[in-house]
């Protein structure tokens, strides 16, 4: 089975100037990362902040150019796709729904921005489509002409999800999708993400520092440490028998699952 999205020896480094007369130094954010996303599965990506998770996500979204290595989509190198074609296949959901929605636009404008950029459908189609997506994501359609400031954090994240899915992408990069939300709302959003995945046959890359979330949702987990993938295993395997020293430390230090969060059945 060919993975739907795959990276091969992906590398990204930044030139850091430390002073006028000292030579520039390269800061390697992502170093030789090879991961595979299988269709319909959830790959969890864990690691402490600053380990390169977000840089990896940016490269997959085409927001950051890799210094070396390849990204393959369905076996095809992603560079061959234009940003337009790539956008129709891979979409992001960001961490902070306060920063990810333009405060000056209505919910309708936000959700249908991908359609208007890609010139899909008439304006009447777009209204219908927006309502359909809002329904799908559990948002009342009366919010169609509201502004983000009139919505709660959870509702905003639903808008962000609707925007990400309006073009029917195959892969969704979820970068800490719930960590900015209230605990009470987190499980609702996670439930929604899993329902949508099953309904639409989506593939997720789930980036999180919350190991409990990853353990419950991911089929496989990749552990990232200083720009490298140090372990990449089936979820059960990884949580039961972590091999790498860093994974063991991570599990010992952070793993404090909050049972209440998942009592409502994820």
């Amino acid at each position: 089975m060919t993975p739907i999205l795959e990276t091969r020896d992906l590398e990204c480094s930044f030139q850091i100037s430390t002073g006028m007369f000292s030579p520039k130094k390269a800061l390697v954010a992502v170093n030789g990362v090879s991961v595979q996303l299988l269709k319909g599965q959830v790959l969890g990506l864990v690691g402490e902040s600053g380990c390169g998770k977000s840089t990896l996500a940016k490269m997959l979204l085409g927001l950051q150019r890799p210094t070396k290595g390849n990204i393959l989509f369905d076996g095809q190198p992603l560079e061959k796709l234009s940003q337009f074609e790539r956008a129709a296949r891979v979409q992001p959901i960001f961490q902070d729904p306060y920063s990810s929605l333009n405060p000056r636009k209505t919910i309708f404008e936000i959700i249908t921005l991908p359609l208007s950029v890609h010139k899909i459908g008439t304006s009447r189609d777009r209204v219908l489509k927006a309502k359909e997506m809002m329904d799908l994501c559990g948002l009342a359609s009366r919010y169609l002409n509201s502004y983000p400031s009139q919505l709660s954090g959870g509702q905003r994240q639903r808008v962000a999800i609707a925007r990400a899915l309006v073009m029917k992408p195959e892969v969704v990069i979820c970068d800490e999708p719930t960590s900015a939300l209230d605990v009470s709302v987190q499980s609702q959003i996670l439930n929604l993400l899993m329902e949508l995945k099953n309904e639409l046959g989506l593939t997720y890359l789930l980036i999180s520092h919350n190991l409990a979330v990853v353990e419950h949702l991911a089929d496989r987990v990749a552990v990232m440490y200083f720009g490298e993938i140090v372990e990449n295993e089936d979820t059960e395997q990884l949580f039961n028998k972590p091999r790498h020293e860093y994974t063991q430390k991570l599990l010992n230090s952070v793993l404090a699952p909050d049972p209440s969060l998942f009592s409502r059945g994820v």
Partner: peptide
Amino acid sequence: NMDYVSAARAIGCPTWRIVLSEIFPN
């Protein structure tokens, strides 16, 4: 640096449009 700009870029929004409709109103 706001995520809505990243979101627009990930959509494939051309730069002039990001500047005019995402940045400028803000």
